[in-house]
């Protein structure tokens, strides 16, 4: 995928420490617009931490220190001067465990949008419908938008979380093992939505499920112990990996 375009996200020489322990070691990778980048690797390889650096959610916990550069849309996202609120709206995040807020389905979907200044109930209703449709949840909840989001099933909750992100009109969607707690049918529905969403968004999908990366990712990156072992088109990573460790991992020899 070598192109002349500027990548949407450019990571160079990026390292992350939690107090004195190095979690990420000199990462270098690009994320292209409108691709699904899968990130695989065993637990503790730094996948989630990397994702949390991208939307600066890592700031919520004290003791982290980073070095190197991450540029998103031509601007650095590191350092104290970055408007993290704006950054987080552009990089929507979906967590491993779906966390609907204790509000109605409707209120959950428009939660972020309301804060970013989307006014008027009619406008918000339209926004909610559009977002829920894109997340593939509209038909299941259209009759009960005012019910508590906590009554939804796990799979529905996770699609609600995706809809909640979409309502913010982000550029990038970060997914942190979004289907790890879901059954195969719910997982299938989410993967389905992701494929559709690729047309309009750039997606970074961290997953513990190697097969999931094979199914949905355009390119796949393999993380191991905080290092990027290999990144490339998914088909090549899964058929002809350059690094023997990648081969060991995807063929299930460890991890």
């Amino acid at each position: 995928m070598e192109t002349n375009r500027e990548p949407l996200i450019r990571v160079r020489d990026f390292s992350l420490w939690a107090s004195s322990v190095r979690i990420l070691n000199r990462l270098a990778l690009d994320v292209e617009p409108n691709e699904i980048l899968g990130i695989i690797g065993p637990s503790g390889s730094g996948k989630t931490s990397f994702l949390r650096c991208l939307n600066r959610l890592i700031d919520l916990v004290p003791g982290y220190r980073s070095e190197g550069e991450i540029v998103f849309g031509g601007r650095t996202i590191l350092g104290p001067d970055v408007n993290v609120v704006e950054l987080r709206r552009k990089m929507g995040m979906v967590f491993a465990i779906p966390v609907p807020l204790p509000r109605s389905i409707f209120e959950n979907v428009v939660f972020g949008a309301r804060l970013s200044g989307v006014r008027g109930r009619r406008t918000r209703l339209d926004l909610a419908e559009e977002s829920l449709r894109r997340a593939g949840l509209w038909d299941e909840v259209r009759e009960r938008l005012d019910e508590s989001a906590l009554n939804l099933s796990g799979g529905q909750q996770q699609r609600l979380c995706i809809a909640r992100i979409l309502a913010l009109k982000p550029e990038v969607i970060l997914l942190d093992e979004p289907t790890s707690g879901l059954d195969p049918i719910s997982t299938h529905k989410i993967e389905e939505s992701l494929r559709k969403l690729r047309a309009a968004y750039t997606i970074i999908l961290v997953t513990n499920n190697v097969k999931q990366a094979a199914r949905v990712a355009d390119r796949t990156a393999f993380f191991l112990s905080g290092e990027l072992v290999e990144i490339g088109p998914t088909a090549r990573i899964f058929t002809a990996p350059e690094d023997p460790r990648t081969n060991d991992y995807i063929s299930g020899r460890f991890g």
Binding site: L60, G112, L168
Partner: peptide, 27 residues
């Protein structure tokens, strides 16, 4: 109040104060 609520709120572009008033205090 679950830490996850704070993370979700922040990830949706809430400032700390908005997180406190709209998510943490109600819970």
């Amino acid at each position: 109040v679950p830490a996850a609520y704070r993370e979700v709120s922040a990830s949706l572009g809430c400032t700390k104060w908005q997180t406190v008033t709209r998510v943490v205090l109600p819970s």
